[in-house]
């Protein structure tokens, strides 16, 4: 997206104080557009103006419902809290801080691209994969449609094409892997954001940036980078003006999720020793002499 357009869209929203804040904040640290590994996005909900351009860009990028841009200008949609689904990989919702209810703020939600994703651990055929540079991607060709990923995701993100009878897919944000992030491209939503509420970069840099913003504007942000530690860390992270409890983002512990089951699985099947040992033991019992005493034992 050209700078001219971005400026134009920015000016259109110039009445917002947050815009100016966003501009200045983004300039604090020049982040490389190109990032070959550990790509991440920082969502600054204090800067987001709820314009839903990211939704439009995502819709266009992935040929979802192919609505035109005007359809995404509808602000009445904020009356209900929406969730991403198979026809919208990202949605923006409006929230209010109870202590400052006049001023709404907006949270864009999509796949968080966890560092250790539960969906990837769940997948029976490896159709979901965490790429080294960040994205969690899906291979429909492998998928059997068991929907364990939907059950497993702590953010309730994977959406299923329940209405497709023959070739249903699991649908979710792809982190725009198909745009080839390694070659200096950014995700469509990041590119479309007129207010730089979305910052794309390496995860380490963005964590640094997030904490720098909190430090620089302590009254504007709650001291919590959502996604830095949640479920072991996510590739999408959030800053917010108030406690994250006000938003739809769930309160989650810092522990990675997959070790819960992987530790059990790998202990029980370590080198196949336990099952083979059981086999051997049962074989020995079976080979030993039949227990004739039992013949008389039946209750009469």
């Amino acid at each position: 997206m050209s700078l001219g357009r971005r400026d134009f869209l920015g000016l259109a929203a110039a009445s917002s104080v947050t815009l100016l804040a966003g501009k200045s904040l983004a300039n604090e640290q020049q982040l490389p557009k190109e990032c070959k590994d550990a790509c991440a996005v920082l969502v600054d909900t204090a800067v987001c103006i709820g314009c839903r351009k990211c939704e439009w860009a995502c819709n266009r990028q992935h040929n979802l419902s192919n609505q035109d841009m005007a359809a995404f200008d509808d602000k009445t949609i904020f009356k209900i809290q929406r969730r991403p689904d198979d026809k919208a990989y990202t949605v923006v919702n409006e929230f209010r801080d109870p202590s400052n209810p006049e001023k709404p703020y907006y949270t864009k939600v999509q796949c968080m691209h966890c560092l250790d994703p539960a969906c990837v651990s769940a997948c029976i055929v490896g159709a979901l994969e965490k790429l080294p540079n960040g994205p969690v991607v899906y291979d429909a060709w492998k998928c059997i449609g068991c929907r364990y990923c939907i059950v497993a995701c702590p953010f309730q993100i994977p959406a299923y094409e329940y209405d497709n009878a023959l070739t249903p897919q699991v649908r979710k944000c792809t982190f725009c892997t198909e745009r080839n992030l390694a070659e200096g491209n950014v995700p469509a939503c990041v590119e479309a954001c007129p207010n730089e509420a979305l910052t794309f970069g390496t995860r380490d840099d963005l964590i640094g940036l997030a904490h720098a913003r909190i430090k620089a504007y302590p009254d504007r942000y709650v001291d919590h980078v959502y996604g830095e530690h949640e479920v072991g860390g996510t590739s999408w992270m959030y800053l917010a003006p108030a406690d994250f409890k006000n938003t739809e983002l769930p309160e989650l512990p810092p522990d990675r999720i997959p070790p819960n089951t992987e530790n059990i699985q790998h202990a029980v099947f370590k080198w196949f020793v336990p099952p083979l040992a059981l086999y051997g033991l049962l074989g020995l019992i079976m080979a030993s002499k039949p227990d004739k005493e039992n013949e008389q034992e039946a209750e009469k």
């Binding site: 998928c143 059997i144 449609g145 094409e161 089951t261 699985q265 790998h266």
Partner: peptide, 25 residues
């Protein structure tokens, strides 16, 4: 129950084995 029932045999293919998944087991 599964959406792509014709892929039910996929867990048998070694290149799709997913030892981390309890469901695979």
């Amino acid at each position: 129950d599964i959406g792509r029932w014709y892929n039910i045999w996929h867990p048998m293919l070694p290149d799709m084995w997913q030892g981390n998944s309890a469901l695979f087991e």
